[in-house]
Nucleic acid binder design. Structure first.
Lengths: 195, 195
DNA sequence: GCAGAACGATGAACTATCTTAAGAAAAATG
DNA sequence: CATTTTTCTTAAGATAGTTCATCGTTCTGC
C-alpha cells in the first residue's frame, strides 16, 4: 500500500476538505507504477488523465517539424502534470508525457473528475483552485520566457529548483530553458571556471 | 446604457446560467470607460479587477531590468485580461495593463468574484471553466514560444488574428512575439517583396 | 561483464536576431 | 494646419545562440 500523505497534504494546502470528501477524492485517484521511458500521454491521443507524482520524475515535451524535442514541463514528487490543453478540452494531445525515472503516480481520469466537479461543491472548488494556480504559474513562466536571456533562465532555474536540477538529464533541461544542450553545457562550464 | 449582449454571449458559450444567475453576474460587473494610454493595472499594486473588453483594445506588458517593454497579452473586443498571477494570488502585480485605444470595459473586483464563487454553484462553475481555459491557452502559447522561430510566430499570429493585427502598434506586437520592432519590420518587408 | 546506446563536453564555423543610429512617415496636440 | 511626439523603416556592425562533427563517459539490456 502506498503512503498517500504527500498527496493529502498537497490538497490540504489548497483548500480544506471534509474527511468524507477527502475520501471521495482519494478514491477517484488510482495508484500506478510506471517504468523509466514509459509514456503516459502521446500526441494524437486525448489526454485521459490528470497526474500527481508520488515518487519519481517526468517531463512533458513536444517534437517540432524539424524533429527537435522541446520540454514543456517537469514534474517530480508532489507536482502535477498533464497536457492541459488536451485534458481540459478533450482534444488530441500534442505533447508526450514521459517518465524520466521509475515512478509512482496518482491519476484521475477526466470523466471521474467531471463527475466529482458536477456533484460536489468542495471538490469543484478544489479543481477551480488548481486551474487558477496552473494559469498563474503559466503566466509567470510566459513572462520569464519573454524577458530573460538563456543564461538568466538557467540561473533562475538553479536558484528555484536546486534539488530538481540533479535529477534531470541536461538535454531535457536545455530544451525547457529554450536553448540547445551544447549552449547549456557552455554556460555551466563558464560558471565552473569562474569559481 | 451599454449593450451587454457580447458579454452575455461570451458567458453563454462557456456554460449555461439561469436567468437569475446571469443577472447576479452582470450586476457584479461595472461598466468603465477608459482613455487611450490609461493604466488599469500597475506593478506594485495588487490587481483588483478581472477585465472583459466590450469595446477597444489593451495590452499588458512588463518592463525588464534593461528598461525594455515586453507585451504579455493583448485583448480586443470580447477578450478577457488581467495580471493573472496578481489577481489570483492577490499579490502585487508585475504587469502594466494599458489601453491602446479609448475603450469600454466590464470589470469585476476580486472580492465580489470570491463572494459569487463561494455562494453560487453555477457561477463557481463558470469561473472554474474560465481558469481552465486560461490555463489551456497559456499552455498552447508556451509551446508555440518554445518551438517556433520569430518568423513562424509572426505567421501564426497573422493567420490567427488577422483583424487584430491592424489595430496593434507594431512595437507591441514585436515584443509579444519576442523580437525587436526592427526585426519585425524586416520580416514584414521581406514578405511584401516576395509577392 | 560486454556491446551498443544515450549522454555530456568541446571547439569551430555559421546564422538568426539584436543594437545602434538616423531619417521618413504617421499621429497627436495645440 | 504647423509643430511636436510617437511610430516605423532601413542598414551596418555586433553577439547570443545554433549546428555540426568528434570524443570521452556513463547507462542499459542482454
Amino acid at each position: 500500500m502506498e503512503d498517500l500523505s504527500p498527496f493529502i497534504d498537497n490538497i490540504n494546502r489548497k483548500t480544506r476538505l471534509s474527511p468524507e470528501n477527502m475520501a471521495l477524492l482519494t478514491a477517484a485517484f488510482k495508484v500506478v507504477k510506471v517504468k523509466k521511458k514509459q509514456l503516459l500521454i502521446q500526441p494524437g491521443f486525448v489526454a485521459k488523465y490528470r497526474i500527481y507524482v508520488l515518487k519519481g520524475a517526468f517531463h512533458s515535451y513536444v517534437i517540432d517539424d524539424k524533429g527537435n524535442e522541446h520540454t514543456i514541463q517537469f514534474a517530480v514528487e508532489d507536482w502535477w502534470l498533464s497536457d492541459y490543453n488536451s485534458y481540459v478540452h478533450q482534444v488530441p494531445a500534442t505533447q508526450f508525457v514521459e517518465a524520466l525515472e521509475n515512478s509512482t503516480i496518482l491519476q484521475i481520469d477526466h470523466q471521474a473528475e467531471q463527475q466529482l466537479k458536477n456533484t460536489n461543491w468542495e471538490l469543484a472548488t478544489l479543481f477551480r483552485l488548481m486551474a487558477e494556480q496552473t494559469a498563474a504559474y503559466l503566466a509567470r513562466r510566459t513572462v520569464s520566457n519573454l524577458t530573460q536571456s538563456a543564461e538568466e533562465r538557467y540561473n533562475e532555474f538553479v536558484a528555484k529548483y536546486p534539488q530538481v536540477l540533479q535529477r534531470l538529464p541536461q538535454y531535457a533541461l536545455a530544451s525547457y530553458l529554450n536553448m540547445t544542450r551544447e549552449f547549456l553545457s557552455k554556460i555551466r562550464n563558464a560558471k565552473v571556471r569562474k569559481k
